[in-house]
């Protein structure tokens, strides 16, 4: 008569997971002045908004949550990105029935089952981390949109003023902050 054995198997998985997310978009700035002049105006506004210039000419800012905003003034592109990483240390244990004490095949099956469960959990944790990063970016996007729109508007307004000054004698400038309208009277 055969005797039933219970084999306890434990597996662990240690892994470093890293996720990132990001988007790139164009700043909506009208072509009023030359690209170089527009870039100079944009750089001035970016500096006032707390951006810092890198050696490659791009301007960047990182907030307290690690969301990085990069602006290329020459191309008028803005890149928003965030990343996160986490160290996983997962452990699983199971007990399986076997017909012999040294039933290697059953032990191997149990081990593979545990491995697949650990892999699935690691994938799930990575997905959760990805969702966290995306949610963090989404949360920042609303304010960032408004800020970038304001920067674009200020650059456009300043470009219009400079263009008007180059055309003749500026007699009157009136701005309505509520509607965003700008009226420049020029004497040619």
């Amino acid at each position: 008569m055969s005797r039933a054995y219970r084999i306890r198997i434990s597996e662990s998985l240690r892994r470093h997971i890293a996720v990132d997310d990001g988007i790139q978009s164009k700043l909506e700035i009208l072509d009023i002045l030359s690209p170089e002049q527009t870039a100079a105006l944009l750089e001035r506004e970016l500096q006032a908004a707390g951006f810092e210039q890198r050696e490659d000419g791009q301007w960047f800012r990182v907030d307290e949550e690690g969301v990085e905003v990069r602006v290329d003034p020459k191309q008028s592109t803005v890149t928003v990105s965030a990343s996160a990483d986490r160290q996983l240390d997962l452990q699983r244990e199971t007990v399986i029935g076997a017909v012999a004490e040294n039933d290697a095949a059953t032990r191997e099956r149990g081990r593979k089952f545990l491995e697949s469960e650990l892999e699935a959990e690691a994938a799930e944790r990575k997905k959760d981390l990805q969702a966290e990063v995306t949610a963090k970016l989404e949360g920042k996007l609303g304010d960032l949109r408004r800020e970038l729109d304001q920067i674009s508007n200020r650059v456009t307004a300043e470009a219009l003023k400079q263009k008007a000054a180059s055309m003749g004698e500026v007699q009157e400038i009136s701005e309505d902050p509520e509607t965003g309208s700008l009226t420049i009277r020029v004497r040619l």
Binding site: I23, S25, K26, E28, V78, V80, E138, L141, G142, L144, R145, L148
Partner: peptide, 9 residues
Amino acid sequence: LQSLHSLGP
């Protein structure tokens, strides 16, 4: 479609 305004939640 391609602007930041289309993204977000």
